Amino acid sequence: MSRFSVPKHFKSFKPLMDLSAQIHASSLEGPLRELVLMRVSQMNGCAYCLDMHSKDALAAGETSQRLFVLPAWREATFYSERERAALAWAEALTRLDGAIPVTDALYEEASKQFSEDELVMLTLLVTMINSWNRLNIAAHTPSGTYQPGKSW
Rank of each mutant, 00 (worst) to 15 (best):
S2F: 13
R3M: 07
V6S: 04
V6I: 10
V6A: 00
P7S: 12
H9S: 12
H9Y: 15
F10E: 15
K11R: 15
K11H: 12
K11A: 15
F13G: 03
K14E: 07
M17D: 06
M17H: 13
S20D: 10
S20F: 00
S20A: 00
S20M: 04
A21D: 14
S27N: 06
P31N: 14
P31A: 08
L32D: 12
L32I: 15
R33N: 09
E34K: 10
E34L: 08
V40H: 03
V40F: 00
M43L: 13
M43T: 04
G45M: 02
A47S: 13
D51H: 03
M52T: 09
M52Q: 01
K55Q: 15
A57N: 02
A57P: 05
T63S: 10
S64M: 13
Q65A: 10
R66E: 13
L67F: 09
L67M: 14
F68S: 14
F68E: 15
V69T: 12
A72C: 11
W73K: 06
W73N: 14
W73H: 01
R74V: 09
E75F: 09
E75I: 12
Y79T: 10
E81M: 05
R82E: 14
E83V: 08
R84Q: 15
A85K: 06
A86L: 11
A86R: 10
A88S: 11
A90M: 08
E91D: 13
D97N: 10
G98A: 12
A99L: 07
V102G: 04
D104M: 11
L106A: 02
L106Q: 02
L106K: 01
E109T: 01
E109D: 02
A110G: 07
K112F: 09
F114S: 02
S115N: 07
T123S: 15
L125M: 03
V126T: 07
M128Q: 05
M128F: 08
R134D: 11
L135V: 07
L135H: 01
A138C: 00
A138K: 00
A138I: 02
H140K: 05
P142I: 01
G144R: 05
T145P: 00
Y146H: 03
P148K: 03
K150E: 14
W152R: 13
W152S: 06
